[in-house]
C-alpha cells in the first residue's frame, strides 16, 4: 500500500525493528546474495587473527538494505526516488537494530507529491549505525 499525501504530516514517524539478534548466518546470506565475499564479514579466523577485529561484522550495505525495508514497508514498493546513508558505526553479530523514519517535508515536484524523509538506524545501545535520507512519491 502506497501512502497518500493526505495521510502524512511533517514530523510523522515510522519505527521498525529490523532484527533483534543479527546472526552470522544472516551476514553470510548477504555475502552470497550481494557477491561481496570480503572475509571480514564471514571468516572469523581471518577477521580475528589477521585483521585484528573481535569478530566478523556486517556489511554496511546489509544495514543499509535492512533499513531500506523500513522505507518500502512504509511508503510502498516502487515509490522511492532517492535513498542514501552515511555509515556511522559497525554492526556486529548479536546486535539489535531499529530504524526510525521521519517525514521532514512534503513538496510538489512538477505535479508529483514527494515526501522527503530522514532515516536513522540505531543499535541496542542507542548508537546510530547508519543515518541518511530518502524521498518517496506519494499518491495525491
Amino acid at each position: 500500500m502506497a501512502l497518500q499525501a493526505t495521510d502524512l504530516g511533517i514530523g510523522d514517524t515510522h519505527v521498525q525493528v529490523l532484527t533483534d539478534n543479527l546472526t552470522r548466518t544472516q551476514i553470510v546470506m548477504y555475502a552470497g546474495a550481494s557477491g561481496d565475499y570480503n572475509p571480514l564479514h564471514s571468516d572469523e579466523v581471518y577477521t580475528t587473527q589477521v585483521a585484528g577485529y573481535p569478530s566478523v561484522f556486517a556489511h554496511g550495505m546489509l544495514t543499509m538494505g535492512m533499513t531500506g525495508r523500513a522505507l518500502t514497508d512504509w511508503v510502498g514498493i516502487g515509490r522511492l526516488t532517492a535513498y542514501g546513508v552515511r555509515f556511522a558505526k559497525q554492526v556486529w553479530p548479536g546486535d539489535a537494530l531499529t530504524a526510525t523514519v521521519t517525514v521532514e517535508a512534503i513538496r510538489d515536484s512538477g505535479g508529483t507529491v514527494i515526501a522527503d524523509l530522514s532515516v536513522v538506524t540505531c543499535n541496542q545501545h542507542g548508537e546510530e549505525v547508519v543515518r541518511g535520507s530518502a524521498s518517496a512519491r506519494l499518491d495525491p
Binding site: 550481494s34 557477491g35 561481496d36 565475499y37 570480503n38 550495505m61 531500506g68 518500502t72
Partner: peptide
Amino acid sequence: EIGGVPAPPTFVQASAQFDPDYLLR
C-alpha cells in the same frame, strides 16, 4: 501497482556478481 517483481532499494549493489574481476570474490 508496478506490475512485476521489484528490486529492493539497494539491489544494484549485487552487480558485483557480474563483474568478472571483482576483488572481493
